[in-house]
Each structure stands twice: as structure tokens, then as C-alpha cells.
Nucleic acid binder design. Sequence first.
DNA 1: AGGAGACCGGACAGAAAAGGTCCTGTTGAA
DNA 2: TTCAACAGGACCTTTTCTGTCCGGTCTCCT
Lengths: 138, 138
Amino acid sequence: MGLQLTRGGEYAVRAMTYLARFPEGHVASLRDIGRAQDIPESFLAKILQSLVRSGLAVSQRGAHGGFALARPAAGVTMRDIIEAVDGPIALNQCVLWPEDCSRSGDCELHKAWQRAQAQLMDVLDSVTLRTLAPQPVA
Amino acid sequence: MGLQLTRGGEYAVRAMTYLARFPEGHVASLRDIGRAQDIPESFLAKILQSLVRSGLAVSQRGAHGGFALARPAAGVTMRDIIEAVDGPIALNQCVLWPEDCSRSGDCELHKAWQRAQAQLMDVLDSVTLRTLAPQPVA
DNA sequence: AGGAGACCGGACAGAAAAGGTCCTGTTGAA
DNA sequence: TTCAACAGGACCTTTTCTGTCCGGTCTCCT
């Protein structure tokens, strides 16, 4: 259908929101997260890897290992999460790489996409895990 | 990468913008449009069919046939065009079919996506072919 | 030291969507 | 009647999405 969030992005937001419901530093295993949020565990593993590589989550290996938020929930935006998993958000190519768009200078279409993009980013940047998660459970 | 306009949508907007550059009612052939906008003709044929079925364009068959806008350029929005080709725009599923989203009632994530969607629509609804096209050539 | 539990990372694979082609109509003007 | 041009469907190729699997590594616990 086009112009839709990927499954991976959706899962990532849900997984992070889940982590945000615990006190800061709480570690949850892949299995816990997957079961709680109904996400296939082997796929979730990949997604969490991306989040760790991007510095949004930290992982703990070995027995009693798992994942936790790397920083306070209020400091992680929806945009951070989605871009970590799906790469940069660009409604169309010419917004991201203006130099590839021959008409980037005076093109009204280009400007329209840039405005749309900016509006979308406003929302995505303003929503954090603190917004999304109920207050942590003790 | 996800969350991007399809090629079809991009081509559709370009094709319609091209038509909007002529005086109202001007008919341009598939070939003309394709050459002018550098769009593969056989693919463009499909796209224009969608636009005609959606009532945004009209077609004229037979010799000297082609395509024209179905209404004045100021009355056709970017959203109209994109939805005609790619189907309804929904950043994520639960915005489009809230009943499928178990948490639609109180879910903060749901609300966030709805806001993002609304902002995007604001822009897409406000940009018309009159915005995009230089004044018609006589 | 030695398991066992849990993440790491890469290869692989099936399904779906995007992107595009082709061919056989049908229409309409000259 | 002929021919230019759209209509519509079948088909195809490539890419992306959505996962799975497995051997490796790390760390806690005993």
C-alpha cells in the first residue's frame, strides 16, 4: 500500500514501550518481551540488536541477561526508535537527497514534500517513551 | 526503508502536474506524458487508468486520444492523486481500522499515530495541482 | 571449572509488494 | 476501413519485508 510503518518499526516501538514500563535499568529478556508484546522472538532478536547498536537499548549477556533502556524514557522519541530499525524516514527520496533531485531548487512539489515531512517529524519527535508508557511499576 | 511514497504515486503526481500546465480540457497522449516526465509508458498506462477510474482524469480513446484533467487544477489535491493510485494513506494499520487494534481506546501510541497522520493529511490536502503547476501555457 | 541461560551475528528463505511488460481487445476519427 | 490510442488482464522480475536457524560468545551460578 505504500507510505506505511513497517512491522519492524511497530514491534520496536512496542518493545521499547514495554521496557519503559519498568523502573529505570530494569532488564527484561527477549522471551519476556516477545511474550508480553506478542512478537515473534527470533524476529524481535534482530530488532533489539538494531536498537542496541543505535544506542537506544543496552543488552546484558549471560544468565539473567536481557535488555533495558539505555537512557531515561523521556529522552527516547518515536522517531529515534523507528529510524534505528528502519533507517532514516523520508516520505520521498528528494527530501532526503536533494542533490539527486534535478528540480530541487524551484520545485513546488519538493517544497510540499518537505513541509509534509516536517509536520510528521514534529509529531514523531515530540512523542517519547514517557508519553507512551504508563508510569513505571515498582 | 519503509514509510515512503511509491514510485507509482510519484509518477501520478508528476503526470497530473504535467496535465495541469495546459489550458483546461487539453488532451495529452500517454506517449507525450511519458516522454515529458520520463516515466515508462507501459507503467504510466496503468497509473493513468487508476486516475481515470477514480474520476481525477478523463480519457479519450481513438485517434488523437489521450488524457486530460477531469476538473480544474485547483480542485485536485496531492492526497487525491496519491490515494487514487496507492489506496488510502495510513501511517499504520490501527489508524485506518481502529477496530482491528485491540488497544485503540486508551492507547497513547494510537493517539500519536493519529496526530501524525492528521498533520500529514493537512499538508497533502492543502496542496493542489494549481499549487504545483506553473500557470497554464496558452 | 563447568554448565546453562541468554544475547550476537550472519546466512538463509518464504511471502508479499513494488515496479514494469505484453498482448489482446475496443474505441473513434479521418 | 484503417489506424492511432486507450482498456484491461495476465504475467514477470526485483526488491523489501518478515521472519527462521544455527554456531559462537559471554556471564552468572554452582
